[in-house]
């Protein structure tokens, strides 16, 4: 058979370049990141000296790192809980027909479309210590008598970071849940109405269980986007005040890139891997479950 009709050869030739690129520029650097974390590499020199677990024992004894690890978990879990609630509620609203829905949908999607760094700088201005419009509004409505230094106090700053992360990701989750809602078989919903189920009963007993895989997908992406995000914290607080609001990516950047200690930076970043493995395993399970019934992945 001629080359022009050999599906196997054509397939390999068309897949090859993308596969080679991904292996060379994602696979190799990934392995390199792990190797660097066991080395004393610095940005200036090109040598790679093996130091075993030295970087890990250094950071595990470092309160700033432990705090960053805790902050990453707090921000990720806190924002994703908010995302689940907001997205499920928003999807119920946006599935209904109402006037101005197209415009409303446009506004709803803005937080996801805007570049993270530009959203973060806008929020920095909103949380400004002198000009914060939030403080003004809270004072005028009588809810606040003192003053809130949003990005100046560790607890408040972390809360602000959680709000911004939830704000940025809930529109994405809403659209995913909406797509899930539209794929629920209508006869199931109608049957539940005929059987006398009201709005809440229908939501919690019929729709949410059916939506679970879709919500899971939205949350898993949300976890990846939040846990691995550098921009929000870097711009909002820069890890401050006094290194209390670092997350793993900002600390890895500070030590590894600004501080030129590649080994330690890599070791800090490697602590993101467990988050990612959990996400990947859960995603595979979701994918496998839907594969059986709906003919999603793997079905040709």
């Amino acid at each position: 058979m001629k080359f022009a009709d050999r599906e196997d050869l054509l397939g390999a030739a068309m897949l090859g370049p993308a596969l080679a690129y991904v292996i060379l520029l994602v696979g190799v650097p990934f392995v390199l990141a792990i190797m660097l974390s066991f080395s004393s590499a610095t940005a200036g020199s090109l040598t790679l000296t093996w130091v075993g677990f030295h970087n890990y024992s250094t950071i595990l004894a470092d309160p700033i790192f432990l705090r960053a690890l805790r902050n990453t978990a707090i921000v990720t879990i806190g924002s994703q809980v908010l995302v689940i609630v907001l997205a499920t509620a928003a999807a119920q609203v946006f599935r209904a027909a109402f006037h101005g829905k197209r415009a409303a949908r446009f506004v709803l999607l803005l937080p996801w479309a805007v570049p993270v760094s530009l959203a973060a700088i806008a929020w920095t201005w909103i949380f400004d210590s002198t000009f914060s419009v939030i403080n003004w509004t809270l004072r005028v409505t009588g809810l606040l008598h003192g003053w809130l230094y949003w990005l100046g106090e560790p607890g408040l700053a972390l809360f602000a970071i959680i709000i911004v992360q939830a704000w940025r990701i809930f529109p994405f989750a809403t659209v995913i849940v909406l797509a899930g809602l539209s794929s629920i078989p209508q006869d199931v919903v109608e049957a539940s109405i005929v059987d006398g189920a009201g709005f809440w009963r229908r939501l919690f007993k019929v729709e949410l269980p059916l939506l679970l895989p879709v919500i899971a997908v939205a949350v898993l992406f949300g976890v990846v986007y939040t846990a691995t995000d550098l921009g929000v914290v870097y711009i909002l607080t820069g890890g401050g005040p006094a290194n209390t609001t670092h997350v793993l990516p900002t600390l890895a950047f500070q030590r590894g890139v600004l501080g030129a200690d590649l080994g330690q930076g890599a070791a800090i970043a490697v602590f993101l891997v467990p988050f990612l493995i959990v996400v990947a395993v859960l995603m595979l399970r979701v994918a496998r479950r839907t594969e059986v019934g709906a003919g999603g992945i793997g079905a040709r």
């Binding site: 990934f30 990141a33 590894g256 890139v257 970043a269």
Partner: peptide, 24 residues
């Protein structure tokens, strides 16, 4: 399908893990 899934999963490896080896 399997191979496509494998390639897709590399999308989950974030820039904040790769920026250190890449800087080198």
């Amino acid at each position: 399908g399997r191979l496509g899934m494998g390639i897709f999963f590399t999308y989950l490896i974030p820039p904040t893990l790769l920026f250190i080896p890449f800087s080198r």
